[in-house]
Computed example of a mutant assay.
Amino acid sequence: MSSTLPADAAPGSASSTALPFTKGHGTGNDFVLLNDPQGELTFDAAALADRRFGVGGDGVIRAIRSERLDEGRALLADDASAEWFMDYRNADGSIAEMCGNGIRVFGEYLVTEGLADIAVGETVSIGTRSGVRRLRREVDGWAVDLGVFRVEEGEPTVAADGLEVDRPGLGIDVGNPHIVVVLADHAELDALDLHRAPRVAPIPPHGANIEFVVPAEPLVQDGTGRIRMRVHERGSGETLSCGTGAAAAALAVRHFAGDTIDRWLVDVPGGTVGVRVTRAAADGGDGGVGGGAARVELSGPAELVYRGTLG
Rank of each mutant, 00 (worst) to 15 (best):
E217R: 05
A197D: 07
V220I: 13
E211R: 00
L183W: 05
A184F: 03
G154H: 11
V158G: 03
L170R: 03
V214D: 05
D173M: 08
F212H: 09
H232T: 07
M229N: 04
G162F: 09
H206Y: 00
E233W: 14
Q221V: 15
G175H: 06
A187N: 14
V200L: 02
E211N: 07
R167M: 07
P204N: 08
E153C: 04
P177I: 04
V165I: 15
P204S: 05
P177C: 07
A197I: 06
T224D: 01
E211Q: 11
F212P: 10
G154V: 03
M229L: 15
A216D: 14
D193K: 06
G225Q: 05
V158N: 02
P218H: 06
L194D: 04
D185S: 09
V182Q: 13
E155Y: 02
P177S: 13
I179N: 03
I172P: 03
L192A: 10
D193L: 05
I203H: 10
G154M: 13
R226N: 07
L163F: 11
H206K: 04
V174F: 04
T224R: 12
L170T: 04
P156S: 11
V231G: 05
G225P: 11
D222V: 02
H178P: 01
V180K: 02
P168Y: 14
P218G: 10
V213R: 04
G171W: 04
D161V: 09
G235L: 04
G235W: 12
T157K: 09
G175E: 10
A216P: 00
H178Q: 06
A160Y: 04
D190K: 10
P202Y: 06
I203K: 13
L189P: 11
P198F: 03
D222I: 00
R199W: 03
V231I: 15
A208V: 00
Q221F: 00
N209R: 08
P204V: 01
D173S: 15
E233S: 14
V220A: 06
E188R: 13
R167L: 06
G162W: 13
R167T: 01
